[in-house]
Design a protein around this nucleic acid. Sequence first.
DNA 1: ATGGTCAACGTGCCGG
DNA 2: CCGGCACGTTGACCAT
Length: 204
Amino acid sequence: MEDAEECITGLCLGLGMGGYVPKKGKQKENRPVLDLAFELCPKGEAINLNHDKVESTDSDNSNTNNNNKGCRKKLRLSKDQSSMLENSFKLHTTLNPVQKQALADQLNLTTRQVEVWFQNRRARTKLKQTEVDREWLKKQCQNLSDENKRLKKELQELRALKVGPSSPLCIQLSKTATLTMCSSCDKLVKLNEGNNNIGLEGTN
DNA sequence: ATGGTCAACGTGCCGG
DNA sequence: CCGGCACGTTGACCAT
């Protein structure tokens, strides 16, 4: 009888790596449920069995073999691999098939792994950029809010000034006419003797 | 125990 | 139709 991990393994294999239950739809033929296999070294580091596969003379399909070996362990890319991928990403965020293959050969990875790494890397970049944008917008919003507050205060102060002959908002036009600002509607009003006021312009 | 990270996956969409 | 990509998701691994 296998141990508990092996039992879980069976479930993992049945459902695929992510335990994802596929919905109806097209399936990529060249994407096996398990296209890679890993095992743990005694220290707990993940070893990519694909590296062995490269040198292996085994003619049979390693996928089927791996399916019987157990649940795949998570690959951790080495520092060198990561930094080379990063450098490559700095040069171009997408790869053409030739570049992909070259990089895969160079790093001793499969093209699929390189492809997945770039997809995930682009997603991370986008996420980071979204976060940056969000912070920027937040700051802008705060600035506008502050400015709005300041302007409201300024307006309030202007309104508080008594509108009268001594007010700076009251201009004597002639002996009979004065230009003043209406305290309720913020419109410039020409006051004439005889009470026939003429609104001149809105300053709202 | 738990939350974060990340490789790997399934699916849908789009352009050639 | 096919390949490539974005997106959302999963689970192994790791730090705390």
